[in-house]
Design a protein around this nucleic acid. Structure first.
Lengths: 134, 134
DNA sequence: ACACTTGACAAGAACAATTCTAATCTGATA
DNA sequence: TATCAGATTAGAATTGTTCTTGTCAAGTGT
């Protein structure tokens, strides 16, 4: 929660509820996950508020938007550089903190200015592996 | 095109048109790109046919579905293991063929069975860099 | 305390990408 | 060439996300 102080962000009760839900959350929730969680405390909460808050946070660098799940966007409050492993069955996502050297081969850069990278690992989680083998 | 032979795939004219458009295509087209391209030759083509064909191809391992573009799925007929660099402005995607070692640190595997990986590089393409600096 | 400005909120409409449905139609095989 | 599993079509439906509009709340200067 500390990290959201002093960013000029207006801390409304709704935003605090969202921030509180996100703080330390390692589930990589979708917008709907967040909406449903916050709805318990704010029954009048609107989807627009969730999306607006997430977008505001993202712009201020307090949140990452993950594209690894083909079905929907997932959000990660941990903005330190790291990677992800997703279960291709149930879409559970876990963090991977390996320190990788990822040089781009000469001639493949195509004149791009590189600003970042992210590794997607694909796998099957223990639960789905077990369910699969029944 | 060769690669699609002998897979038990029923080769209808529509599918051939899609395969022909995809063959060797390095643009990483979206479903709509494909639909629009094929529509020229098959004016009665339906979106469903495009999606059905893409899904069939994917299941048979003849096509990759990319999630790197946050707005829509992109498709890659090159199924050899490789990575991608996307322009965060215009969403142009280019191939990266570096050979990377990507071991998962002990204790972070979370019991997952690993089946693959893919690196997303983010950048700004020459065209957008130029447009930006005006 | 009052008017003003700015930004946030709620509700639902709108939108875009994708998937599904139901009714034909067709390619591959016997 | 008859058969039939699988493919095609048009359009409806669904899902995730964004936009619009009117209202509201907090902070500022008077």
């Amino acid at each position: 929660m500390e990290k959201y102080k002093d960013t000029g962000l207006k801390l409304t009760p709704q935003r605090l509820a969202i921030l509180n839900y996100l703080d330390g959350n390692k589930e990589h929730p979708s917008a709907e996950d967040i909406y449903r969680a916050v709805l318990k405390r704010f029954p009048t909460m609107s989807f627009a508020t969730v999306y607006n808050t997430l977008e505001t946070l993202r712009q201020r660098g307090g949140l990452l938007e993950l594209t690894i799940d083909p079905d929907k966007k997932r959000f990660d409050p941990n903005t330190e550089h790291h990677h992800h492993l997703i279960c291709v069955k149930c879409k559970r996502i876990v963090d991977i903190h390996g320190d990788y050297k990822l040089p781009i081969p000469n001639g493949e850069r195509a004149g791009f200015e590189i600003i970042g990278n992210h590794i997607e690992f694909y796998g099957i989680c223990p639960k789905c592996k077990k369910a699969n083998s029944l």
